[in-house]
């Protein structure tokens, strides 16, 4: 029965393992707990990108810019410098929606472009977003970043609930925040699963496989693509919100939201195989897990070696991501080549 397909089993296993992570002696293993949470946030980010690429077949190279919009949006809503000062729950919802809307608005005019042109345009968007975030300091905090993002969990009228659950201040840190992120990841994962099984989901598959045939069948490719962008960007915006709250400040735009970051996320999505949620989950966790946590573990081992750059794992970062892209395209480009998928 389809319910127990291989990918379902793997997904259950993965989530099970993730659920157990906070019980590991992370300190002893030399893994800072905030990295583990960050990994989850990046997984959500990658899931958003997977939606866009997987559902539209379009290569979005500017996803880091969308991430930045989500992060800064959260920052604006939460920081003390502005009068909004919303709670986390409200901010999460608003950031998700606002990011989705902004991204849809920017991307809508260029959806009809050919694949490689679209990729370049999103690249350009990313750079422009970074510049905007950097320069409009009085709104976005720019290089100085918006600081001290420590919102309450619930809005005011529920603050007594927050106190009685003993969550004040604690929800933002490990392990509760980890579970919040994991919960959101699971929710989004299941939501996408249901979406893909629905009529809309099959519409996405149709337009990716053959846009012309799909319009002949009465589907509106432009509308579907825009929807996919909206959903994907919303998820990315959500990840941005989590990132901002987790780091307690927005980060420097030219460091965290650049094209390089887009490519890194892209590499993780490609490694897992696009369109496959579970595959992507595994791929992201493997690649980014290696990048964030594995390198840390291994570098302790490698610190025995002489202090040359090529012995430091961090020096090989770009190369590893680059090779992932090259090798995947050469040997397993499925996902970008729809007809090879069954």
């Amino acid at each position: 029965m389809k319910y127990f397909s291989a990918s379902s089993v793997v997904a259950v296993l993965v989530f099970g393992l993730l659920f157990l992570v906070p019980n590991l002696p992370l300190g002893q293993l030399g893994i800072p707990s905030n990295l583990v949470t960050e990994l989850l946030i990046l997984t959500i980010l990658a899931l958003g990108l997977n939606v866009i690429i997987g559902y539209t077949g379009l290569l979005h190279l500017g996803i880091a810019g969308v991430y930045g919009i989500g992060t800064v949006c959260t920052g604006i809503l939460v920081t003390e410098a502005f009068p909004f000062q919303q709670s986390f729950v409200i901010t999460l919802i608003i950031s998700t929606v606002v990011t989705a809307l902004i991204s849809m608005a920017i991307t809508a005019p260029v959806l009809r472009l050919r694949g490689d042109y679209f990729a370049l345009v999103t690249l350009g968007f990313c750079e422009i977003v970074v510049t905007v975030l950097k320069e409009f300091e009085h709104i976005t905090g720019g290089k100085k970043t918006l600081q001290n993002l420590r919102p309450p969990l619930f809005p005011e009228f529920l603050s007594s609930l927050e106190q009685s659950l003993d969550l004040v201040g604690k929800w933002r840190i490990f392990p509760i925040f980890y579970y919040i992120c994991l919960g959101l990841l699971l929710l989004i994962f299941l939501g996408l699963r249901n979406l893909e099984k629905s009529r809309i989901g099959r519409g996405f598959v149709a337009i990716r496989e053959d846009e012309l045939a799909a319009s002949a069948m009465g589907l509106n490719p432009a509308k579907l693509k825009l929807m996919a962008i909206g959903i994907g960007s919303g998820i990315v915006g959500l990840a941005g919100c989590l990132f901002a709250v987790h780091s307690t400040n927005t980060t420097e735009p030219q460091v965290s939201f650049t094209f390089n970051v887009s490519v890194i996320i892209l590499a993780s999505v490609i490694l897992g195989g696009m369109g496959s949620r579970t595959g992507m989950l595994v791929g992201v966790l493997l690649l980014l897990g290696y990048d964030k946590i594995g390198t840390r573990l291994l570098s302790d081992v490698l610190s025995q070696l002489p202090d040359k750059p090529y012995f430091k794992l961090s020096s090989w970062r770009y190369m590893i991501f680059g090779l992932v892209l090259i090798l995947m395209m050469r040997f397993r480009p499925y996902g970008i080549i729809p007809e090879k998928r069954n």
Binding site: L61, S315, M319, G322, L323, L327, M329, I336
Partner: peptide
């Protein structure tokens, strides 16, 4: 398809940057 060598080019770019 066109996007495949494009993504590979991104990969090469990263390797060269490294």
């Amino acid at each position: 398809p066109r996007l495949v060598p494009l993504v590979s080019a991104l990969g090469v770019s990263f390797v060269l940057i490294n």
